[in-house]
Design a protein around this nucleic acid. Structure first.
Length: 423
DNA sequence: TCTGGGGTCCTAGGACCC
DNA sequence: TCTGGGGTCCTAGGACCC
């Protein structure tokens, strides 16, 4: 049996752990750039606050109900996530970290006799050690644990945030209660198609023929059907698979027309992504650079383009990557548009030690890796961008994201640690 | 005025090879 | 008048996840 553990309203709960005065009150967290509401606790949802709506459209409602609003604080959420995962790892023989707030656990043999008790134990332990509330869904396959997890949420009081699909009758009843669009792996588009064919629940989906599912929804759909039937198709991935791409693409605080400013933003993103690459001990063989105008302003002329560059030698060197990124950018930049976003993805990643030198590399620079190490160390200690290439410039305030309601980095910055008043 | 970011997997179709 | 079959690699685009 597998267990899916997920933190309730994860981002909001992280904020509340350090603001206990906010438990029981409506709280939301905004996306990057303070653009949309992306997380809301139950109290906020019950006020009718919609997710993924532009934040400025929700402001009247937020103010009317005195909802507390935070910008996203990924340093905090990332660190809290690690604490949750470490706690869970002590409660299971095998753990897959599935996302920032979810993990699949192999249920220990010794607890199979009383799965509900195990679920409660997991909940209590995470609560005590991290302060965060979690839900637990237990079932024989990953897709079914997802269904169980939904049901655990639907009736929190009765289920105490846990649900077990342990026998055939429960499986059938659970699938019949589960709307097809709530099934893991069935998105909006597919759900619409399925509903047109009279498939309304997860159960209906399992009644379709294999042939049809394979043909219309590819092997992915077929795998899903089996999983819902209780036949495991997806193994626990205990060792996280190496990333195939590493990238970053963030919207600007304001739309930009000036290519010089966009190049500076791109240089900053390159530095971020190169550092990520080095941390994962990988080098990149190619990169994709892309630009986008603001698609939410249909009145503006729209333009998006991307280009892929194969690097002469795979590298993790920031200036080298920045050079190629700039060349790529100049290839796709067109004047006369108001740009919203520039992004870079690195791919063809290989283990750094496996680097194949270019036979005719005109300018091998054996000291560069050391330079990168020094830069990374300084920036870790003194803050991102302390030491940077000149191409990043000094005008970050003209494009950086808006974060007007950022909470302190309680657990990762010494000078922002929570203080307990003395009187 | 203000609408997220970071990923994965799959398929179709074109270019190219022998 | 008639123009193969089998295969790989690459890119673009769609769909999905959290």
């Amino acid at each position: 049996m597998l267990a899916l553990v997920d933190v309730n309203s994860f981002y909001v709960s992280c904020e509340q752990v350090f603001r206990p005065d906010l438990w029981g009150k409506p709280v939301v967290v905004l996306s990057n750039n303070d653009g949309c509401v992306i997380a809301a606790n139950r109290e906020a949802k019950s006020l009718g606050i919609a997710m993924w709506k532009p934040a400025f459209q929700s402001i009247p409602l937020l103010e009317k109900h005195h909802v507390t609003v935070f910008s996203s604080n990924y340093a905090l959420y990332g660190d809290m996530s690690q604490r949750v995962m470490e706690t869970l790892s002590l409660l299971t023989p095998a753990l897959e970290v599935y996302s920032i707030d979810e993990a699949f656990l192999d249920v220990p043999e010794s607890t199979v006799a009383d799965l509900s008790a195990y679920a409660q134990q997991v909940r209590a332990r995470v609560r005590q050690w991290t302060g965060l509330p979690v839900g637990v869904g237990i079932a024989p396959t990953k897709a079914l644990t997802k269904v169980a997890s939904k049901l655990a949420k639907r009736n929190r009081e009765r289920s105490r945030n846990t649900f077990v699909i342990g026998d055939e009758d429960t499986r059938r009843a659970s699938l019949q209660e589960c709307p097809v669009e709530d099934v893991w792996g069935i998105g909006k588009r597919t759900a619409r198609r399925l509903r047109k064919r009279g498939v309304h629940t997860a159960w209906d989906f399992t009644q379709l023929s294999d042939v049809w599912v394979r043909q219309e929804l590819t092997v992915v759909g077929l795998r899903l059907k089996r999983e819902l039937e209780g036949v495991p198709q997806l193994d626990l991935e205990i060792v996280p698979a190496a990333k195939q791409m590493i990238g970053t693409a963030k919207s600007f605080g304001h739309n930009l027309e000036d290519p010089h400013l966009i190049r500076e933003a791109l240089a900053w993103y390159v530095a971020e992504v190169a550092e990520k690459l080095r941390r994962q001990k990988r080098i990149a063989g190619s990169m994709t650079v892309f630009v986008e105008t603001n698609r939410f302003r249909p009145g503006d002329p729209q333009y998006t383009n991307q280009t892929r560059v194969r690097l002469p030698v795979p590298t993790d060197d920031t200036p080298e990557l920045a050079h190629h990124a700039r060349v790529a950018f100049d290839r796709i930049f067109r004047p006369g548009y108001r740009y919203k976003k520039v992004g870079i993805w690195l791919s063809d990643l290989v283990v750094a030690s496996a680097v194949q030198q270019h036979l005719f590399d005109p300018d091998p620079q054996p000291l560069r890796p050391h330079l990168m190490q020094v830069i990374d160390r300084i920036n870790t200690q003194y803050g991102k961008g302390t030491l940077r290439t000149a191409s990043v410039g000094f005008r970050r305030s003209q494009w950086k994201l808006r974060q007007q309601r950022l909470s302190p980095c309680y657990t990762t910055r010494l000078n922002e640690v929570l203080e307990v008043g003395t009187g």
